[in-house]
Nucleic acid binder design. Structure first.
Lengths: 187, 187
DNA sequence: ACCTGAACACCGTTCAAGT
DNA sequence: ACCTGAACACCGTTCAAGT
């Protein structure tokens, strides 16, 4: 059997899950697949492209049901934000991977786009809705990236000082989400 | 005359300003200084350390006067946020460099720490103040990083589609800052 | 004290040539 | 169509040896 794009993506996701973004190189990936590095480029445009696919996959399960009403109660934007965070946390350096992909092509991630959809119609203009969605996205990606970097540093045993030692990440995240949402809806 | 830590930092800042983070390698830096790569490691611990120094320098001028009252009017937090943005925009990939440094050692950047100081005493608990400052920081760094990536892509002539084509970055940034601040102060 | 030379262990990407 | 082999142009970091 010949090499498949799926196999490449799956193997890449495996490296990401278990070893992180720093260990995800095209050469390492080729080695794991028992193939020459050049072979990958038949199935994938380049590394950036591959990271984009990984980002989509990380967020694939999220926000699919967010548009239909009555899935559960509570603020739907708040819930989507929490779901995005959970999905990012499930993969090592997930927030960094998605941030990279988002920086290059913000429209390619449905879960993020849904944030904007859900934000619509709260008395905000279209422009304000766009800006608001961006504000929330920057917060989410930044907050989770910091959480994960912090976890990596802690695992490596080299935290600068006892900074952010308390494990209040969940609370801090929701506090931030709520603050942004309250601020937006007060426009 | 022998090589100096200052010379290294200045040369690194030059590369950053003119060519960006992607071109800032230890080997390129050594070449520019007419020295062997290994020579740098006498004066600098490693590349991460160097990036930390650059981050501090990028924000060095910012927020020094923010603590004393009456420098100007308007919300001091809002003004500091805008000043940080201006400083980041002055250097290519400035937001990325500062984000890297901030992820590894959040306390090392006085301008960012001042955000927290200024946020104090608005009816927020200490914990809420810390979380609030983080929320604002994530927004600032994320927003400016996106601006700069967007500018880089535009300069390279490879924008995905005509996405974010309107030049409303200033407005969008202040909208975000104001929303976050309003949300925080409504806690 | 400060730097060179040279190495170690890597990168992403391309492309003629093979099957 | 799909992959190998080999190259090109790089990385960050270390360290014996020189001055």
């Amino acid at each position: 059997m010949s090499l498949t794009r799926r196999q490449i993506v799956d193997a890449a996701m495996d490296i990401l899950r278990h070893y992180g973004l720093g260990d995800l190189s095209m050469r390492r990936l080729a080695r794991d697949l028992g193939v020459q590095p050049g072979a990958l480029y038949w199935h994938v445009k380049n590394k950036q492209d591959l990271l984009g696919v990984l980002a989509e996959q990380i967020l694939a399960e999220v926000g699919a049901d967010a548009d239909d009403p009555g899935v559960s109660d509570g603020d739907p934007v708040r819930r989507l934000a929490a779901d995005i965070r959970t999905a990012l946390l499930a993969v090592r350096d997930g927030a960094d991977v998605v941030s990279l992909a988002h920086a290059l092509n913000p429209e390619a991630l449905p879960a993020i786009a849904t944030l904007r959809t859900l934000l619509q119609g709260a008395g905000l203009t279209d422009q304000q809705t766009r800006w608001g969605a961006r504000t929330l996205t920057h917060f989410i990606l930044g907050a989770v990236a910091e959480e994960q970097t912090h976890a990596d540093l802690a695992a490596a045993g080299l935290l600068p000082e006892n900074v952010y030692q308390d494990n209040d990440d969940d609370e801090a995240f929701l506090f931030g989400v709520d603050a942004v949402l309250a601020g937006l809806r007060a426009r």
